[in-house]
């Protein structure tokens, strides 16, 4: 069950927040309560699920060394990987724009629930990071890339919802005034990250 182990690994061992610390800004800013955190989490899962497989196809058939061989044997030596960064960001920006328009048209209630979070995702390092890691991990087929994207999104979702749950409870505790809010959040995330280190290096 290759797919299952890849899925579980990408949620816990390769967790975008706790293992790679990507997507921190929106993670910290939007985790004040569980409902909004869940909204952003779902949006991240969705964008990852759409952009990563597209970027995988682009990488396979256009960007990586020798990818253009299907155009003709003269192109077999072309290596366009230096364009990866720009191509991936362009795809992400475009997808976020399209998703925003589609959601607004087909589900206005969902659109107003997500609010500003959708455009914010375009600059979320976790999305770009996901595509860059996909490049490094050399997936065998698009199925693996898709499973990885779902797992990574789910990992991010879990991270932000759990932090929001903790922060909601913390608001009832006696935190020193100067530490309230951002300060205690940083320390909490640090402790959660240490806890997640138990998953580091586990081979499934």
């Amino acid at each position: 069950m290759e797919y299952l182990s890849l899925f579980v690994k990408s949620i816990f061992v390769d967790n975008m927040i706790f293992a790679y610390f990507l997507g921190m800004c929106s993670y910290l800013a939007v985790s004040k309560n569980v409902k909004t955190a869940a909204g952003l989490g779902v949006a991240v899962i969705f964008v990852l699920f759409v952009t990563l497989p597209i970027n995988y196809m682009l990488n396979e058939y256009v960007l990586k060394p020798g990818a253009l061989a299907w155009l003709g044997s003269d192109f077999a030596n072309v290596d366009l990987s230096f364009l990866s960064f720009i191509v991936f960001i362009a795809v992400i920006a475009a997808i976020v724009q399209i998703v925003e328009m589609v959601v607004e048209k087909f589900s206005p209630s969902l659109y107003s629930a997500l609010g500003i979070f959708l455009p914010l995702i375009a600059v979320n390092c976790a999305i770009l990071g996901g595509s860059l890691f996909m490049q490094q991990k050399d997936f065998v087929n698009i199925g693996e890339a898709t499973v990885y994207s779902l797992g990574s999104g789910l990992g991010w979702f879990l991270a932000i919802v759990s932090l929001a749950a903790i922060r909601e409870r913390l608001s009832y505790s006696n935190v020193p005034a100067a530490l309230k809010g951002l300060g205690i959040t940083f320390i909490t995330v640090g402790l959660m990250a240490i806890a997640f280190m138990t998953f580091m290096g586990i081979a499934l």
Binding site: G183, F186, I187, G190, L191
Partner: peptide
Amino acid sequence: LPPFALILLGC
């Protein structure tokens, strides 16, 4: 390790 940087930022 990175978690410690977070704790330092909190401080």
